[in-house]
Design a protein around this nucleic acid. Structure first.
Lengths: 153, 153
DNA sequence: CCGATAAACTTGAATCAGTCAAGTTTACGA
DNA sequence: TCGTAAACTTGACTGATTCAAGTTTATCGG
C-alpha cells in the first residue's frame, strides 16, 4: 500500500543514483514500515528479494541518507532506526525499554526550538528533540511480570 | 578550583553511598571537566590515584548516575559523556566532527518543550534536546586541510 | 545491442564502546 | 577488630557498525 507520489525509481534517478533491486526494495519497504532497524529492514526485504547481505542494507541506507531519501534516528543505547519522512522537523518518542519509536509533531510549533540562544561558535544545522519514556506495552509487561522487559518491540 | 557547596564525601554519604577514593576522584575531576568521556575521566584520575581500572570508572559513573550525582549525554555515533550539572533542563550543542559538547540553556524557556502534544500511550519522563553542528575548531581545520578532521576534541 | 567501467553488492574480518562474570580488596557498621 | 556487602581488578565477550578485498551489475558511449 505504498502511496508514493513519485515512483521510487524516479526518486533515485532524480538524484543521479543507480536504480537497483536492493534500493527499490529498501525504500518501498521502509515506506510501509517506519522506524525500522537495519535488522528489521534486512528481514523485511530478504523475503521479497530472495536474499541480500546485511552490509548491502547498510550501504543502501547510507546512500539514501546522504541523498536525503531517508532519515536516521539513533537513540542512545539502541540500534539506529530509519524512516522515509524527512525534512519536516518532527520529533520522536522513544521507549527506554524496547526502543520502540513514535513520531511527534513539534510541540512548540515549527522551528521554534531550532536556534540555541548561544551557539558557542558552532555552525548549527539541526535540532533534535527526543522524548524518552516507557511505552504502554512495556508498562503493562512490567506490571504483569516485573523484572522482565519483553524487549525489542 | 572545584567550588563545591557540599563536600563530595557528604554528597555521597547523603545518598547512602560508600565514600571511596575512586568515587571522590571521579566526582572532583568531573566538576572541573564537564562533558568528559569515560576515557577522559580515566586518564584524568589515573594520575591522581596512581591507577584505576576503566571498569571501575564505568561502575562509579553508573552508581553516580543512578544517585543523580552526574548526568549522561550519549550523542549518536560518539562515546557517552558525563557532567555534574543535573536537573536544570539544559541542552547540548554537539560537534558532528569531534564530538565536543557545549551547554545551552533551553531556548524556549524551562520545560516548555517537555510535553509532546500526543504521547502515544508513553509515560514520558524526559525531553532531550540536542543541537548538531560543526564547532569552530573543526570548521577551521576543515578549511585549512580539507578531508582531515582532527577528531576527538 | 555490446562492451567498458565505476558503482553496488558479497563475504568475512575488524573495531569500538560498553557489559558481564569471577575473583580480590576495602569501607564501615556491629 | 571483624565480618560482610559493596567496590574494584582483570579479562573475556557482545552487538552494532565499519572496513577491505573481490565479484557482480546498471548504465553510458559506441
Amino acid at each position: 500500500m505504498s502511496r508514493e507520489v513519485t515512483p521510487i525509481a524516479d526518486q533515485l534517478r532524480a538524484r543521479g543514483m543507480r536504480v537497483t533491486a536492493a534500493r527499490h526494495a529498501v525504500l518501498e519497504w521502509l515506506a510501509d514500515n517506519p522506524h525500522a532497524t537495519v535488522e528489521h529492514v534486512h528481514d523485511g526485504i530478504s523475503q521479497r528479494l530472495g536474499s541480500i547481505s546485511k552490509q548491502a542494507v547498510y550501504d543502501v541506507l547510507k546512500a539514501c541518507l546522504e541523498a536525503d531519501l531517508v532519515q536516521q534516528i539513533k537513540p542512545a543505547g539502541h540500534p539506529a532506526r530509519f524512516e522515509r519522512r524527512t525534512g519536516d522537523n518532527h520529533h520522536h518518542l522513544v521507549c527506554r525499554s524496547c526502543g520502540r519509536i513514535e513520531d511527534v509533531d513539534c510541540a512548540v510549533g515549527a522551528r521554534s526550538c531550532l536556534n540555541p540562544d548561544h551557539d558557542h561558535g558552532f555552525e548549527v544545522d539541526e535540532a533534535e528533540v527526543m522524548y524518552w519514556g516507557i511505552c504502554g506495552a512495556c508498562r503493562t509487561a512490567a506490571t504483569n511480570a516485573p523484572g522482565d522487559d519483553h524487549s525489542r518491540q
